[in-house]
Amino acid sequence: MIALQAIDKSFGDQTVIRDLDLCVERGQTLVLIGPSGCGKSTLLRLILGLYRPDAGSVVFDGRALEHQDLRQVRRRCGYVIQDGGLFPHLTAAGNITLMARQVGWPAERVRTRLATLSEMTRFPTDGLARYPVELSGGQQQRVALMRALMLDPDVLLFDEPLGALDPMVRYELQEDLRRIFRELHKTTVLVTHDLAEAGYFGDRLVLMREGRIVQDGRFEQILRHPADAFVARFFQAQRGHRPDLAGGETATSPTAGARD
């Protein structure tokens, strides 16, 4: 579905992505993980065409991005960022339905879709008339999620969608997100720096460091056979000073420990 081929990207004299290749299969959920500044958020922006690579090319659904209408590509992607990026001058419903109205959906179709989404994301209907400032952080992220899903996109791109939430809210939303991912079965790329979250969501983990991919595989596989000392250290650091909490896919964080 998405292929990044020999991508280089720098900002000024700072190189963010170096000679990177990555393929995301249709229907796959891929988690990008790595320390801050490793270039994982930049990858999402490259896929959306928000950044243009210095070298290499981004292929979306079989065609290079530079030969496509970016607006059409973006409408086939749902993008959710850490603090929602909601438009403060529009209500929740206004945010969610903006693009549908823009592309000329009839009102009835918009209404039906909105009802479906608020049920799917367990968002209270009376909250739809509220403005973003009147919503809690978790509710804002649910609105951002609905906005991303509105046009029923082929691809979901999530940039630390739960990063700014407190643990309880985060826990609930993680569950809902995984349920939705499984229901919709869309091509998904999720960026996180939290290993537990990565293990919870991903079929496939891609670990990045300084603009390069250092390891790519299933969670357990990476955990058991770290590719180098950095990967081992990264896992060790996430495990923290409570080795009793660590141990593979389960119980790497309080939230993950509580599921099943």
């Binding site: 992607c77 990026g85 693009m99």
Partner: peptide, 25 residues
């Protein structure tokens, strides 16, 4: 930036971004 980027990522045209998001804000 998150707001302008979200507007672009939604697939709004630059006029749409200006009229629907940026000028109102």
């Amino acid at each position: 930036l998150p707001i302008t980027e979200s507007a672009a990522a939604l697939g709004l045209s630059s006029w749409g971004r200006l009229l629907q998001i940026e000028l109102p804000l």
